[in-house]
Amino acid sequence: MEAQLNDTETAKSIWEKLPIKGKVNTWGEEIYFEIPVYKGPENPVETVEEGDLAYWPSGRCFCIFFGKTPVSTETEIKPASPVTLIGRLSGNPKEWAKVSEGETITLEKIPE
């Protein structure tokens, strides 16, 4: 699935490290996996939207939010702790429900 990264320093650091492979972890309707980027919080947020991509500084993880997490409320999607928003999915976020824990995921640049 394609995605657009934003212009945060964190997103730029991730872009520079691509391609990145990781082993999928799931937490509710969130996929996350450790990446080789070490950044502190950058404008951290406590709620996200379906389809948001984020960096979780506490775990040095790339996060894909396709729905609610175990700590979400009726009206808000919440990560485990504050995250840095780094982009958005271009496709249907619910497609990520097909990905299973332990699968390998690859983040890569799309040639222009």
Rank of each mutant, 00 (worst) to 15 (best):
V71A: 01
E30N: 09
T75K: 14
P36A: 12
N25P: 00
W96N: 09
V83M: 05
S100I: 01
F65L: 04
G28P: 08
P93Y: 01
K12L: 11
E30I: 01
T75V: 09
P93A: 07
M1V: 11
I77L: 11
F66T: 02
E30L: 09
T104E: 14
E74Q: 12
V37C: 13
Y32V: 00
Y32C: 05
S81F: 02
I110H: 08
E49F: 06
I86Y: 04
L107G: 04
C61T: 06
E95G: 01
K109T: 12
G51R: 02
N92Y: 05
P57M: 03
S72A: 08
N6W: 05
I35V: 14
E74P: 01
F33Y: 10
P70T: 09
E49L: 11
P79Q: 07
I31E: 06
T84P: 06
G102S: 08
I31H: 04
R88C: 04
F65H: 04
E16Q: 15
L85H: 02
A3G: 13
Y55W: 04
F33L: 10
V99H: 07
L18T: 08
E74V: 03
G67E: 01
E103M: 10
T8N: 10
P19R: 06
T69V: 01
L5T: 10
C61S: 15
E42F: 06
Y38L: 14
A54T: 06
V45I: 15
V37W: 11
P19I: 06
K68A: 11
I20L: 12
Y38T: 10
G67A: 07
E34R: 15
S90M: 13
E34A: 15
K39H: 13
I110A: 09
P79Y: 03
K78R: 15
T104C: 00
E2V: 09
S100D: 12
S81I: 00
N43W: 07
P82A: 05
G59H: 07
K68E: 06
L85D: 00
T10V: 14
A54P: 05
L85P: 02
K23H: 05
K12I: 04
E16T: 12
T75C: 02
T26G: 04
I110D: 06
E46D: 15
K21G: 03
R88H: 14
S90K: 15
A11R: 05
S72Q: 09
K12N: 13
P36C: 12
K21H: 09
T47D: 13
K109Y: 02
T73L: 03
K12V: 03
W56M: 03
S72P: 11
S100L: 10
W56H: 06
P82K: 02
C63R: 02
K68R: 14
T8C: 09
I77V: 15
E50L: 01
E103T: 02
G40A: 14
P41T: 07
E76C: 03
L85T: 02
G91Y: 01
V48T: 09
N6Y: 08
A54D: 04
T8I: 06
P111F: 04
E2M: 10
E108P: 00
F33W: 08
V99T: 11
K94S: 15
E9I: 00
E49N: 15
